[in-house]
């Protein structure tokens, strides 16, 4: 069940705003996370998971999954080595034929408190001609006790980065996510990054008690950022293929249970590291999706596609994403929208 699409055109505005950030967007593809790769496997819930939620996929011995890893950019040009957010969308295939999704990214928190923030940021991030760096920038940065600015990418004369930084200067709530997005290096492998669900969800336990939780997939192999340069543009795809030929890639699903004072409906705010942390199960990816991902690329993943016992919170961004993802899926002629 995904959120209702009757949202007064908000989904369309969110969709259009993202398209505007990527002038080379190709119709029929995702507006962001355009380049991805599919994998399949199964999820094994932990022994304690049923104590926290009655959601179907945590009661079974194992449940089949389809996963799509992606780069955050909406550009159809693959550029695996770029500083960018990575995505990991997971679909749990339930015995009934229905499914439920977990949509995560490598950002620990989000940029926006609500859809309007998101539209403002997307507007700020529209590509503009890059101003050349002042000649003495290295020296002035040193004297200002700042970190040296990264060199501009000569291949793209336009960039939205300056606009995004200007937005962050005026909007303190957006800073943690923006700084992470602008500095997060590519991983050595899609299977060596942690992915966060960002939003708060509600678990209902067998006694009917509700707990507020945030989730992350943690790679069993550990997190490893890429430090080498000159890697091929599609090295993450190649690496995943080779990795899965050697053996499965595993992730642990970790739930953090919120406590008093935690932001339940504001994804820009992180939670303290002292919160109760529960292992909900382990994901085992065994192979790439068949037919070069022919079924995965059009497939809809939606963060609000949940099942009883695992509900969405009042997070306005989450609710808006639910509708916008469904709208976007229909726009690009996707499947399972």
């Amino acid at each position: 069940m995904v959120a209702s699409p009757t949202d007064g055109g908000l989904s369309q505005r969110l969709f259009d705003a993202l398209i505007a950030d990527y002038p080379d967007h190709r119709p029929g593809t995702r507006p962001v996370h355009a380049v991805g790769i599919g994998a399949v496997g199964y999820f094994v819930p932990s022994d304690v998971a049923p104590r926290f939620t009655v959601a179907e996929h945590f009661q079974m011995e194992r449940v089949n999954v389809t996963v799509r890893f992606s780069n955050g950019s909406g550009s159809p040009v693959e550029s695996d080595a770029a500083i960018d957010v990575r995505g990991m969308a997971t679909k749990f295939h339930l015995p009934s034929g229905d499914s439920t999704d977990l949509v995560m990214s490598s950002l620990p928190v989000f940029f926006s408190r609500n859809p309007q923030d998101f539209l403002d940021l997307a507007k700020a991030g529209e590509p503009k001609p890059v101003k050349p760096q002042p000649r003495w920038s290295r020296l002035t940065d040193m004297l200002l006790l700042r970190e040296p600015r990264p060199p501009a990418d000569p291949s793209s004369p336009n960039s939205g980065t300056a606009g995004v930084i200007a937005y962050a200067n005026c909007h303190p709530f957006a800073r943690p996510a923006i700084i992470a997005a602008l500095t997060q290096p590519a991983p050595t492998s899609y299977a060596r990054a942690t992915y966060h669900a960002i939003h708060t969800f509600k678990f209902t336990d067998p006694d009917g008690n509700v707990r507020y939780c945030r989730f992350a997939w943690e790679p069993v192999a550990g997190v490893r950022p890429e430090t080498r340069s000159g890697l091929p543009k599609d090295y993450l795809h190649t690496e995943l293929r080779q990795r899965l030929m050697r053996g499965p890639a595993r992730f642990v699903l970790r739930a953090v249970v919120g406590g008093q004072g935690d932001a339940l409906d504001n994804p820009t705010k992180g939670w303290d590291t002292t919160r109760l942390r529960v292992v909900m199960g382990e994901l085992v990816l065994t192979q790439l999706a068949p037919d070069a991902g022919a079924a995965v690329e059009p497939l809809s993943f939606n963060p609000t596609r949940v099942v009883p016992g695992f509900d969405i919170s009042n997070d306005k961004v989450l609710v808006a994403r639910g509708a916008a993802y469904a709208y976007s899926c229909r726009q690009r002629g996707g499947t399972g929208c």
């Binding site: 509700v210 507020y212 919120g258 406590g259 008093q260 339940l264």
Partner: peptide, 15 residues
Amino acid sequence: TGTNDAVVGNNEPEF
């Protein structure tokens, strides 16, 4: 531990 006084404590319905 982890709960507040029900009569006078700093309670929020969520927790």
